[in-house]
Design a protein around this nucleic acid. Structure first.
Lengths: 106, 106
DNA sequence: CATCTAGTTCGACGAGTATCGAACTAGATG
DNA sequence: CATCTAGTTCGATACTCGTCGAACTAGATG
């Protein structure tokens, strides 16, 4: 990978496989992160997306979500934000994410 | 659990958590098993639900699906069959399984 | 009964995972 | 510049997971 800005480097051109996505969502911490992002409608500061685990653990989870193509990372006003790649996921898997988040919100 | 027949013993009264279900589906072998069952409309012999892994590995995967509450096991004419618990999953999680299988069928 | 097929359990193994604190990096602020 | 907060990476750890073949179980069949 050539030198890019942080935002670009986290812009995965491809979403992971359906299994990758499901496996990534199959963890309570990550599912909660995604659930919180779903309602945000845009980038959200990392610290607002989880509770109950350490910063380093949360960082690990964001990495898993990112590598599965579920989120993208952006630095806004010097703070790291995470945002769901709704459009890409919808394009690849249809209403999977939406149905999952709705189920998580039950 | 009191003594019951094999079919009854595999009748889990409760579906697993959403994370359990997603994690169970987040494996290529198990996702394929579920995808094949989806179109069956009823119990299906185990041997028809997978390919590429050994019998013991397949058996392990069926166990994971069963413990997540995704399938139920029944013995028909002496042969073990697996069947999706569509109604229970729909009741617990809405259209999650349907959207996942549709995505798997893309 | 013996034999067969289908499926489960067991034990082992290498790989992967979720977690943490320490060390580090990235910015903002005064 | 120093200091702070937010977030990442690293190393370590205990645990889990997917895999297999062997041994076992469950039925059907002749």
């Amino acid at each position: 990978m050539t030198t890019q800005t942080a935002a670009e480097a986290d812009e995965c051109p491809v979403v992971g496989t359906l299994e990758d996505v499901l496996a990534a969502l199959g963890d309570p911490v990550r599912l909660e992160m995604v659930r919180r992002m779903w309602g945000a409608g845009g980038p959200k500061p990392c610290g607002q997306l989880y509770a109950g685990v350490s910063k380093s653990t949360a960082s690990h989870h964001f990495k898993v979500l990112r590598e599965a193509g579920i989120v993208r990372t952006a630095r806004i006003n010097g703070k790291v934000h995470q945002e769901l790649r709704k459009a890409e996921l919808e394009a690849a898997f249809g209403p999977v994410l939406e149905s999952v988040v709705r189920a998580a919100n039950r």
